[in-house]
C-alpha cells in the first residue's frame, strides 16, 4: 500500500473473490468474533476530515489512532457491552467487527474469516449472512414500509416474496410491531423505528448482532424496551452493544471498557 486511503466501498481491491462471494465463508472457529492486536489509524485529510487507513498503510502524513492493540474474543450467547467516552473507539471497533472497515494492523476474525483477506464483495456477503447491524439513527429506508425494510436482506438472499413477507411479519411481531407492518418509518416513533431496525438485523438470522448506540436517540423507557429486546437475542447468538450509557451496559453479561482506543478492562458485570 502506498499510503493511499482505503475505504469500505465495493471497489475492486485485487483480493481473491469468488463468483458467489460466499465460498470462503466458513465456520471453523468456535468464537464468532476474534480480534488480535488490532490497531486502527485514520489519516487526516486536507479538508479536515479523516480517511480510513487500511491494513498495510504506512505514511508520514498525520494520523490519529482510533484503536491500539485491541484483542478480544466473543462467543455465541454472549451479550457484550463496549463502553467508553466519546472518541474512545467504540464505533470504530463495531465497524471493524462488522467488516465495514478493516484494521490498519492486526486481524479481525469474523465467523472464522479474516476480514482483511476477504474481497469487498465477500465482506458484503458475510455481513448479509452472518452479521446484523443496528445503528444509532436507525437508517431505515423511508420509502419502504416497516415490513419491506425488514425484508430487504431477504430480497438479497433470493427468498421468495411470500416467505419474505411472512418472515418479516413474524420478526415485526417478535419486536412488538405486528400492527405496524405497513407503516413507513416516517409514520413510526423513534422507538418503533429502532425496533424495526432490530427486526431487520435479525432477518438474516445472523451469528452476531452489533448495535452501535442503539438507544442514543431514544427516551429512557423506549431505550429500555430496545435493550430488553437485544438482551433476548443473545440467547442464541452473540450481541455486541456499544454504548456510553451505564444503565444500558448494566444489562450486558460482559463489558469491555475502552479508553483512547485501548482496552482498559474486560470483565463480567457484577450482579447487583
Amino acid at each position: 500500500m502506498d499510503g493511499s486511503t482505503r475505504t469500505a466501498t465495493e471497489e475492486s481491491d485485487g483480493r481473491a473473490d469468488t463468483a458467489e462471494g460466499t465460498e470462503a465463508i466458513t465456520e471453523d472457529s468456535e468464537a464468532i468474533v476474534e480480534c488480535s492486536n488490532v490497531t486502527k489509524r485514520y489519516e487526516r485529510s486536507g479538508g479536515g476530515g479523516w480517511f480510513s487507513f487500511g491494513s498495510g498503510g504506512e505514511d508520514d502524513r498525520p494520523t490519529v489512532t482510533a484503536l491500539s492493540d485491541v484483542s478480544l474474543t466473543i462467543e455465541p450467547g454472549e451479550f457484550v457491552g463496549l463502553s467508553g467516552p466519546s472518541g474512545s473507539g467504540k464505533s470504530t471497533l463495531v465497524h471493524l467487527l462488522a467488516g465495514l472497515d478493516e484494521p490498519t494492523e492486526g486481524t479481525v476474525m469474523l465467523a472464522g474469516q479474516n476480514v482483511s483477506s476477504l474481497s469487498k464483495r465477500q465482506l458484503t456477503r458475510l455481513r448479509l449472512e452472518r452479521v446484523g447491524i443496528v445503528f444509532q439513527r436507525f437508517h431505515l429506508l423511508p420509502s419502504l414500509s416497516a415490513r419491506a425494510n425488514v425484508a430487504l436482506p431477504l430480497v438479497e438472499r433470493g427468498v421468495g416474496k411470500r416467505e419474505r413477507r411472512e418472515r418479516a411479519s413474524n420478526l415485526l411481531e417478535r419486536v412488538g410491531l405486528g400492527d405496524r407492518i405497513g407503516h413507513r418509518p416516517g409514520e413510526l416513533s423513534g422507538g418503533e423505528q429502532q425496533r424495526v431496525a432490530v427486526a431487520r438485523a435479525l432477518a438474516g438470522d445472523p451469528l452476531v448482532v452489533l448495535a452501535d448506540e442503539p438507544t442514543g436517540e431514544l427516551d429512557t423507557e423506549t431505550g429500555a424496551a430496545v435493550l430488553d429486546l437485544l438482551g433476548d437475542l443473545a440467547d442464541d447468538r452473540a450481541v455486541v452493544l456499544a454504548s456510553h450509557d451505564g444503565r444500558a451496559l448494566d444489562r450486558t453479561d460482559r463489558v469491555i471498557r475502552l479508553l483512547d482506543g485501548q482496552v482498559q478492562d474486560d470483565g463480567q458485570v457484577q450482579d447487583a
Binding site: 465495493e10 462471494g21 464483495r121 458484503t124 448479509l128 452479521v131 429506508l141 436482506p153 438479497e156
Partner: peptide, 16 residues
C-alpha cells in the same frame, strides 16, 4: 448516499 451506504452495510451487494 446514506441510504445506499445503509444498504451496503446490511449486506446488499453492489450489483443489487
Amino acid at each position: 448516499s446514506e441510504q445506499l451506504a445503509t444498504l451496503a452495510a446490511i449486506g446488499i451487494s453492489g450489483r443489487a
